[in-house]
Design a protein around this nucleic acid. Structure first.
Lengths: 345, 345
DNA sequence: CATTAAACATTAAACGTTAAACATTAAACG
DNA sequence: CGTTTAATGTTTAACGTTTAATGTTTAATG
């Protein structure tokens, strides 16, 4: 078992003390040019790599940040993760990832494990089940910087980066209305999540703005492709079937699309469909999916930058940042074109 | 700055020594039942969490495994990652992820950073650029267990988990031939990758088996959606255009599909398309994509199990495991149905 | 009653690194 | 020639934890 070479090994071999080696490697002015050269050469030749574990213990802070996501196999989350990793990496930090698998208990365990690992900070998006926030409060109590993204915790006062869900939903539904849709179904994620509440508000406000009576029977908690296929089949058989669907994510929209096509209805002539996310599905389905674009990569970048600034104490300790990532409606083929207003002379 | 409580704090408060606390927490027989109770109660009440950093230093082994993937935003890799994370987590390990962004230098830096972090083991899939393996050899030299998955390093003798690329490709191309295709193009990833070589061999052998002359001009390095759209447009204009495309991944196949439809050709009547991976794209595109299914989650699970066994010294130190993950052809709508052989009386 | 053993706890060293405090040498100064 | 000072190191303690070695009671034994 030949392990990595340490400062002690170098010191012994070179006949100097460990601290001299340590300082030589840091170009400390107390160490002569000659010794510095000698040490560095030996270190390089023997592939010395500082022991980050010892360093973390000594410095009482690691170069690791923890990230908790619901699931990694999800275009949006993996995109955010990618943004986080790129930024963290460029600043010399490593990323410890955990997925909570939409499970509250697992989320609690993950946070506990991150505390044990003494990560310098945490970036998290909560599970669908989470309604108790004590585990996050514990992080805060330990003075571990915490940034929420997307699925935030309103109960915890800290930095957060969220998608402008309200506006995204509003503009999507407004577009559906403007293209002639009257009965717009909304497939949401559980209402424990803020994103669900905000998008529903956007949905409701758009309806109200155009004087469309709200029908709560058009709002469903349904956020997977499979569930969407089943639910949509049922809904389409009702006498007063929806003429449009606004889904919480593209996978769900894709499920709707599949069910609508199977029912022999045309998209968008008979039924309009709009998703949320603008992931791979949206640009490969047929018809191509109209969807609300959310920039996951940018979200990851901003969340990580915010966290690193907090770690480096560059932010006011009493004031927290709330960053909103703008969305944009990407109109493709699953919705009708805008009706041109007649030209008045 | 209130930090986490330590064993020392507990010891001071309870008027015992640190080692007593340490042993009490481990139910050491030398510590009285009463003391154990007392310590545990205090620890629980004050939310004591062992300092994994100190533990790692002491034990000379961390509970962290490093994972290097080309990109996280990729259905296949995020799926593997998910399998790895689930297994690692269930065994008490944390996962440090790095993406090499298909960049050799970054890959080298990532490995170096993992060595510094003194991870217990590494699971990796190399970048497209990688042809020099010294960084991985260094890991091996330090006795850090290393498992390659998917994009392996043939130059390094270690454990590996790979997709049965040869058979996957063979059966896909065989199917295309059996359904009447004669000029089958192959869109590959760079041939520095073993998966490319293996799949090409499968492709070639299938052609040979059915006596189809190999035309090297049908083999291209093209592995993204964008490139596929461009390349396919060109190829379709040639006098002797391909009547089938076998792509290295679903995104590329989706690009082919898009170009073929745009060219006014029908899929699969005029052109057959087969992808590789069976990710989200395959089950949401139109027509649905025929593709070679590769079980990424299983791959992650097996790679992680193999690594953990190696870490726990449960495997022969001189013999390395080479695990092959079986594939299966998922026939959907982008290829023609099998021609039924006429029944002979 | 002295000895031994059992039960329980403490001390000290170690993991790799750093930083403050202290030590040595040699040149420069008065 | 002694003393200061600059240059260059070294020692030591510390980060949180574990563990081997050692110490101290108390109870039981002969």
């Amino acid at each position: 078992m030949k392990a990595q070479i340490t400062i002690k090994d170098i010191a012994r071999e070179l006949g100097v003390s460990a601290s001299t080696v340590s300082r030589a490697l840091q170009n400390h002015p107390d160490i002569s040019k000659a010794t510095i050269e000698l040490v560095k050469e030996y270190a390089k030749a023997h592939n010395y790599k500082p022991n980050a574990v010892a360093l973390s213990l000594k410095k009482q802070r690691s170069n690791i940040i923890g990230v908790v996501v619901p699931e990694m196999v999800h275009h949006f989350f993996s995109t955010v993760l990618s943004g986080i990793e790129d930024v963290a990496n460029s600043k010399g930090y490593n990323v410890l990832v955990c997925q909570n698998n939409e499970n509250y208990e697992k989320e609690v365990r993950m946070i506990s494990s991150l505390i044990s690992a003494r990560v310098s900070g945490v970036i998290a998006s909560i599970s669908k089940e989470t309604t108790n926030y004590a585990h996050f409060q514990e992080l805060m109590d330990d003075n571990t910087p915490l940034v929420f993204f997307d699925r935030i915790c309103t109960g915890i006062n800290t930095d957060r980066v969220i998608i402008d869900d309200y506006t995204g939903a509003f503009s999507a539904v407004e577009y559906l209305i403007k293209t002639g849709c009257k009965r717009i179904a909304f497939y949401s994620a559980p209402f424990t999540l803020e994103i669900s509440k905000n998008r529903k508000n956007g949905y409701l406000d758009a309806l109200r703005k155009y004087g469309i009576k709200v029908d709560e029977s058009l709002v469903h908690v349904c956020d997977t492709r499979e569930d969407a296929i089943e639910l949509t089949q049922q809904l389409l058989q009702e006498p007063n079937r929806p003429d449009a669907f606004f889904a919480i994510n593209d996978a769900t929209a894709s499920g709707v699309l599949s069910a609508v096509k199977k029912a022999g209805l045309r998209v968008p002539e008979d039924v309009s469909i709009c998703g949320f996310g603008d992931g791979i599905i949206a640009s490969t389905s047929d018809p191509l999916l109209t969807t609300v674009q959310q920039n996951g990569y940018q979200m990851g970048v901003e969340a990580c930058n915010m966290l690193l600034k907090r770690i480096e104490n560059e932010l006011s300790p009493t004031q927290f940042n709330h960053r909103l990532i703008r969305t944009s409606l990407v109109v493709r083929e699953s919705t009708k074109p805008l009706i041109e207003s007649p030209i008045h002379y």
